[in-house]
């Protein structure tokens, strides 16, 4: 089963879960397309893969229209983890971006609200480490 939204093809990975792989430059366009499908932003999971040298970002949306989770997977380089922000398209994604920056060190270009200490405690922030990275030593 597949869902086609604009030029993006979402493939079913399990019942009611559809995934599309996108590049950072396509991300904003994909989010705009997903939001047209009566969706709300549900979660942003950042997963660290130090061996491959990458961080995988999973933007999870729930589409009320399709009754399915639409997931956008974006992979970024671990040493230069930068993606464009989506908070101007979905204001609801603010918490997800702040958390991914604070705990995983992903920079969301254009989001001027990014700050350390949003969730992480002061001692972690002072050391300048991102606690959810596998090599952070936390």
């Amino acid at each position: 089963m597949e869902i086609n939204i604009g030029k993006f093809i979402f493939k079913e990975i399990s019942p009611r879960r559809y995934v599309a792989l996108v590049t950072p430059s396509e991300l904003r366009e994909a989010v705009e397309a997903v939001m047209m499908e009566e969706s709300y932003f549900s979660s942003l999971t950042a997963i660290d893969f130090p061996k491959e040298g990458k961080i995988e970002l999973n933007y999870i949306f729930w589409s009320v229209k399709h009754r399915a989770a639409l997931i956008l997977k974006v992979t970024v380089d671990r040493s230069n983890a930068v993606v464009p922000t989506i908070i101007d398209i979905v204001p609801g994604a603010l918490g997800g971006e702040l958390e991914a920056y604070d705990l995983m060190g992903v920079i969301f270009e254009g989001n001027n609200k990014l700050r350390r200490g949003f969730l992480a405690s002061e001692d972690v922030v002072e050391k300048g480490i991102y606690p959810l990275r596998k090599d952070s030593g936390v």
């Binding site: 009611r16 969706s39 709300y40 009754r67 989770a69 204001p91 609801g92």
Partner: peptide, 25 residues
């Protein structure tokens, strides 16, 4: 605005959007 704000649960349903995980998923 409810979907753009991405609120969930009774707060979302009180804004007229029938979305409940128990029935949708």
């Amino acid at each position: 605005e409810a979907l753009r704000l991405s609120i969930v649960g009774p707060t979302l349903r009180a804004s007229g959007i029938k979305s409940d995980v128990r029935s949708d998923d």
